[in-house]
Design a protein around this nucleic acid. Structure first.
Lengths: 167, 167
DNA sequence: TCCTGATCGTTGGTGACACCAACGTTGGTG
DNA sequence: CACCAACGTTGGTGTCACCAACGATCAGGA
């Protein structure tokens, strides 16, 4: 297929506005498309969250705590696929904002028990709405059936590499 | 929707090996799944390329040049959705490796005409093989029909936001 | 009991990638 | 000529992923 058109012999004044076309080979690569789509997704979601003063990791942490209750930092990192060191910073910021609480674990003094606060839950409600809106923006070009199938394929593709790609 | 299951009352000894489970809410978010999948893709592709001494941007640039012929740096950036400044670095590395050539544009002295070299084309053959292999790894859990549909959905989702999400 | 190894939180660093601001140079236009 | 746009370049910021090391703590076996 594609007998390889001998490279645009067209003059292509280079600067003009035919609109930029990526190399065909890249536009066919699943990994490239995936990276682009993820970039768009991170953009719209990040923007939506930034309007409420948080980043994506903060949102993830708040949800993990809201759903799973108080856990240690290490366990939190395991569930979200986040490195302990990165989590340390995120938790510091969340704690400074009063959205989470860190308290020493009475059963194991190595651990910090982290939990979401009431202000954290309140903030999470706003964030959820913003993120849902961002999802709609992201998936705007897909109909309902396509959205469902898209999500299904992503889940299948990821398989057990959720949440931590690292072995 | 989602009447909010009252948070796992299960004790969950926290440290134990049930395998980390991300919050349900996140596992349903298309943007989150997308980000994860893109991370996995970037991982396998990046690893494959690193074995040949290049990163993903180098691969993109080489392909753009191989398909489109010599172009200016700015036009290259437009086609690939890369910032001029980032491209500057990438081109410097590629030129140092002898895979591309920069020469002043005779018709417009502002521009550099960038083209791929013969060693560049040779390297690209290796890179293509490695990247194809990485795609197979990435899509291993999807059958042929699913892979086609997955790619189609990505293209539809991206719409005209290829290659530059930035307006 | 003591020793050993694993886990915890913390600190500090690296690399890839996206994006932005500014500069001097050059081209095109009024 | 004066002006603005585009070019390549330099230098910076922010997000995210990942890694190495430290002291403190816990659990298990000798």
């Amino acid at each position: 297929m594609t007998p390889a058109p001998p490279a645009t012999p067209a003059p292509t004044p280079d600067g003009m506005g035919v609109q930029p076309v990526p190399p065909r080979r890249l536009a066919e690569l699943p990994s490239w498309l995936l990276s682009r789509a993820a970039g768009v997704g991170a953009g719209v979601v990040g923007e939506a969250l930034a309007a409420h003063g948080v980043r994506r990791h903060h949102f993830s942490v708040l949800h993990a705590l809201a759903e799973g209750g108080a856990v240690s930092q290490a366990e939190l990192g395991r569930r979200l696929g986040l490195d302990r060191s990165d989590l340390h910073v995120v938790l510091g910021e969340l704690e400074a904002s009063g959205l989470v609480e860190r308290s020493p674990d009475v059963h194991d003094r190595r651990r910090n028990s982290v939990d979401i606060t009431e202000p954290g839950r309140a903030r999470l409600v706003e964030l959820d709405a913003a993120v849902d809106s961002a999802q709609r923006t992201l998936l705007a070009r897909l109909d309902d059936a396509e959205r469902a199938e898209f999500r299904r394929l992503l889940v299948v593709l990821l398989g057990d590499s959720i949440p931590a790609p690292a072995e």
